[in-house]
């Protein structure tokens, strides 16, 4: 019997379309590419970062953009001692709700720290930018403690 010829073809499962992120999410992501962080002012005046397209309470369309700081304060956090394969950091790290200077609503991102004992609610953190920014939430590689030399 002759050896069987196995037919094969590369296959990539993917979505073959692109989608516009629009004037609010798109503006935020473009800002990240330029290493700026912008939020939006809600109907009640609070600054929400990342910006939302519509106000949760009034449903008003939001377009009053405000640049906020690249440092902030931890509002809540948890310690991931065993990172999952999908997680952005593969060393033990924290997820945190971080209220950036000039913002009224926290944002969720990861915090790189050497150990759980370095972290606390109220701790100051600062952005660590990715080496290459491309207009994506992961342009913020992570946050790190602002007042600890690692």
């Amino acid at each position: 019997m002759s050896p069987t010829e196995v037919l094969s073809e590369a296959f990539e499962l993917g979505f073959t379309y692109t989608r516009s992120t629009g004037p609010v999410v798109g503006r935020f992501l473009t800002g990240l590419r330029d290493r700026r962080i912008e939020g939006v002012r809600a109907s009640d005046g609070r600054v929400i970062v990342p910006p939302m397209e519509y106000d949760s309470d009034t449903a008003a369309a939001l377009d009053d953009f405000v640049e906020v700081g690249q440092q902030g304060e931890i509002v809540s956090w948890c310690w991931v001692s065993e990172p999952r394969r999908a997680h952005p950091l593969q060393q033990p790290f924290a997820w945190a709700m971080i209220k950036l200077d000039g913002a009224d609503v926290a944002m969720i991102h990861c915090v790189s720290a050497a150990s759980e004992s370095q972290l606390a609610t109220g701790a100051r953190v600062k952005v660590r930018w990715a080496e290459e920014t491309r207009g994506h939430i992961k342009d913020i590689a992570c946050f790190e403690l602002a007042e600890v030399t690692q």
């Binding site: 509002v75 809540s76 948890c78 999952r84 969720i108 991102h109 609610t121 994506h136 939430i137």
Partner: peptide, 24 residues
């Protein structure tokens, strides 16, 4: 899909942050 899903923030971690808000 733009701010959180690409970070793969898991449900246990989100609940853990909720628990800490209550504890604090």
């Amino acid at each position: 899909p733009y701010y959180l899903a690409p970070l793969w923030v898991d449900t246990v971690s989100l609940a853990a942050m909720q628990a800490r808000l209550m504890l604090d």
